[in-house]
Write a protein that binds this DNA or RNA. Structure first.
Lengths: 320, 320
DNA sequence: GGGCCGGTGGACAACGTTGTCATCCGGTCC
DNA sequence: GGACCGGATGACAACGTTGTCCACCGGCCC
């Protein structure tokens, strides 16, 4: 900028004015400056600008894994909203590890992101308090965090309730639940919905039909249940990865899965799912974040997005 | 930092030394400083640090669409490598639009990323020259860019050649090619491999069996070909999205697809694919970038990654 | 002609950090 | 006792921007 000023024969501040479209510059002078900028290939140094102004026009996004289609869809939505607000996105995958989540968040904060969208891996977010005090906005997405803050989640229990109810209406009485680790909020909520649906139908809750754990063990769990005496006639799977793991076993009991996924309609039979919208989740969270950044006051909000049951065949198979 | 210094009763510089683990600080003093830092909840301002030091420890990643599983896998690999090198990733989706690609890249440059990994949407990258001169490293991934720079791509022509050869060996003589728009490098390379395989087998090249265009039109194109007189007995699809579009038509001719995808093994028949590794692509590109950033000299390299044919059933269907 | 005004441009400090160099102090060596 | 040394600490400038405030100039009004 100094060089540009020298080349154009004006003061530093005048160049700054031109670069920022500030009023009070003679058009002729401005033109000289623009020419000098073009000639020298000058580009403003954002770091210095950030240092001076305080706002970085950057938000941080912490998800579990970008490579998971659910979160990558969410990422894309966040990115689009950020773009519309002139912001960039720093993103990182926590891999469901609270320590890594914390590290990522604090690194983002050190870079003075304006705001954060976090899919919490842990449950303790006290480490965020000083940052919130410092004026960084935060929105929890997909799961609630360990403190009062804006939160966008989907109707996990309601969705599971609807999915399991669908199987019950098709005559099933022994329905297995394959879910993610019980420590994960979405998993326990969905289990709650499953239990409520069974209870409302007057069906017994059989612990041997419930398996919670990482997706890569879900296949084996399903095989074990089906091999046991008095096996389930239907399965409710607690997320997209688990649904895929169940399908990969080759068994084809009646099945309803939480989360829609590509090719669910191409498989035979098509896979009936309770769909939530990764897109909607990301968009809603990002929009809420930017509302806060633009100064919207008020207590922490908690938005719950609806789910939608999509019958495709697998969930309509009657019990044998 | 000023406040910390005051609280600990030392000079600014001493705090800086402690924060950066520089030698030459009395352990007792250091302890006082650490205590003051903890008490005040101080965290270093990276913007100021960047301003002073010049390196941002941030790289920019421009891909086509994070929500595409291929690119999200690549993203994850880049992120992991960056993490190991203590860097963060700013990412953006170009949506195959050269203008947007350029905007993203220039925005990243204004933020003084240390380096860039670009999946080029356009073919003209002269706009990058001033940035490269300014010391920003750049690696093109998945496709070559419009200038001499490090590039990591996969063996597109070879992979297509292998896939089409596989169909030929299973007795097919009329093989359709469904590819992405011909203007996209990977698409035209794969078409080249297809043509070479046909030529080597002495098969005629029939233009009516070739359809190039966006994935959402591939289904209709396939239906039209199959409805024509003398339809193809096999199809080679030029990328993952097009493979899915073809499957969604419900027709099940012999098929080999470029790109592996989740559930390819669960469909019946399993889908035979020419797999490339989004992971390997991202990792290789990022590692090359960090080698350059750590000062490795030498001319621009071009790395080609191999592909792998995975037979699963759909590619082994004989002609009727 | 003096005072004032709006339009233009510049000087300077400040943002929070780090690199350079100077200072200070206690001890050691001749 | 003075020169010297090494370790610890600090003062200060600089990074590139922007906000604040002041200076200048030509014209206009009384």
């Amino acid at each position: 900028m100094k060089d540009v000023a020298a080349a154009a024969g004006v003061a530093l501040k005048t160049v700054s004015r031109v670069v920022n479209d500030e009023p009070g510059v003679n058009p002729a002078t401005a033109e000289r400056v623009v020419a000098a900028i073009a000639q020298l290939g000058y580009r403003r140094n954002e770091s210095a600008r950030v240092l001076r102004r305080g706002r970085t026009a950057t938000i941080g996004l912490v998800i579990e894994d970008v490579a998971d289609p659910f979160y990558s869809g969410m990422s894309r939505a966040v990115e689009d909203v950020a773009l519309r607000h002139g912001s960039l996105v720093l993103s990182g995958s926590s891999g469901e590890d609270p320590v890594r989540e914390r590290e990522l968040v604090l690194t983002f904060c050190a870079r003075r992101v304006d705001g954060l969208i976090i899919v919490p891996a842990g449950t303790d977010h006290d480490y965020l308090l000083p940052e919130l005090d410092a004026g960084i906005a935060a929105v929890f997405a997909d799961r609630p965090g360990g403190l009062e803050a804006d939160t966008v989640i989907c109707d996990n229990a309601g969705g599971a309730h609807a999915g399991v109810g669908h199987l019950i209406r098709h005559g099933h009485r022994r329905i297995a639940f394959l879910g993610d680790s019980a420590s994960i909020f979405t998993a326990s909520e969905r289990l709650r919905g499953y239990r409520r649906a069974l209870a409302e139908a007057g069906l017994p809750a059989d612990g041997s039909l419930i398996a919670m754990g990482p997706a890569d063990r879900a296949g084996a769990a399903l095989c074990a249940m089906l091999a046991a005496p008095d096996p389930p006639t239907a399965v409710f799977t607690g997320n997209g990865r688990i649904t895929v793991a169940a399908l990969r076993t080759g068994h084809r009991p009646a099945l309803v899965g939480f989360d829609d996924f590509e090719l669910a309609d191409v498989l035979r039979p098509g896979v009936t799912v309770v769909a939530q919208s990764p897109d909607g989740l990301g968009r809603t969270a990002a929009e809420m974040l930017f509302r806060r950044l633009s100064g919207e006051p008020g207590p922490a909000e908690r938005i719950q997005l609806p789910t939608r049951l999509i019958p495709r065949g697998s969930g309509e198979i009657p019990p044998p």
